[in-house]
Nucleic acid binder design. Structure first.
Length: 210
DNA sequence: TCATTAACACGGG
DNA sequence: CCCGTGTTAATGA
């Protein structure tokens, strides 16, 4: 676990801290498609992603979803740090985009290290900053892009976090992430295929240009 | 005009 | 057979 930690966070966190995280954090392994955390779940600590990728979604009371952003290796999920402001329940759903490994750091340790280590403080603040930027981007695309544009952006984002132009997905999943209907997604995907942007297969989309 | 819902046929695993 | 896909028709904002 120490090796994975160093690969993902070694560039920002000092050796002592990495050792402490390895010693006190809970290692967690999730496989693709698993719900890592759901609305209302108690937050056990600060999740620090070691490898893989996690999809973060907002969900309303009817169960409708809406993609917020992806977490990649070296990201921590600052949304869970709502704890600092008194909430102990998750307000998001997190689904494994790939098989992933993470360390969950207990909150007492997070408090402690934020006071003790400048580099840890830095990590948390940077994480907040990045998540906020990604949220702003999600709002932008909702406000300024039509569904065709949102779908194209969505596909290129997924290509980026997966590091592959071959996406294992279905039209229904895309529809859920973009909070629209599958009919529309099918039509837009067909259109993108005719434009030569993608290639459609069953349970798979090959992204040719992005 | 463009999205949504319902309904259907086709085909692959 | 079940599920993912592609399409159409009717309806709504």
């Amino acid at each position: 676990m120490k090796t994975l930690l160093k690969e993902a966070y070694g560039h920002i966190l000092n050796e002592t801290l990495l050792g402490e995280i390895a010693a006190t954090g809970a290692f967690k392994e999730v496989s693709k498609g698993m719900i890592v955390m759901d609305i209302g779940d108690p937050i056990p600590g600060l999740p620090m992603l070691l490898n893989g990728a996690i999809k973060v979604l907002r969900v309303n009371d009817e169960g409708d979803e809406m993609l917020l952003y992806f977490l990649e290796s070296g990201d921590s999920c600052a949304m869970t740090l709502g704890n600092f402001f008194g909430s102990t329940k998750s307000t998001i759903r997190a689904v494994a985009e790939q098989d992933s490994n993470m360390v969950v750091v207990p909150l007492e340790k997070v408090y402690h290290w934020m006071g003790e280590y400048a580099d840890f403080r830095q990590l948390v603040i940077e994480s907040f900053n990045t998540r906020l930027k990604e949220l702003a981007e999600a709002v932008d695309s909702l406000a300024f892009l039509d569904l065709h544009g949102r779908t194209a952006k969505y596909l290129s984002d997924r290509v980026k976090v997966n590091g592959s132009t071959s996406l294992d997905t279905t039209h229904a999943e895309i529809a859920a992430d973009l909070h629209t209907s599958r009919v529309v997604v099918s039509r837009i995907l067909k259109q993108l295929e005719r434009e030569g942007t993608i290639e459609l297969h069953r349970n798979r989309i090959e992204v040719l240009r992005f």
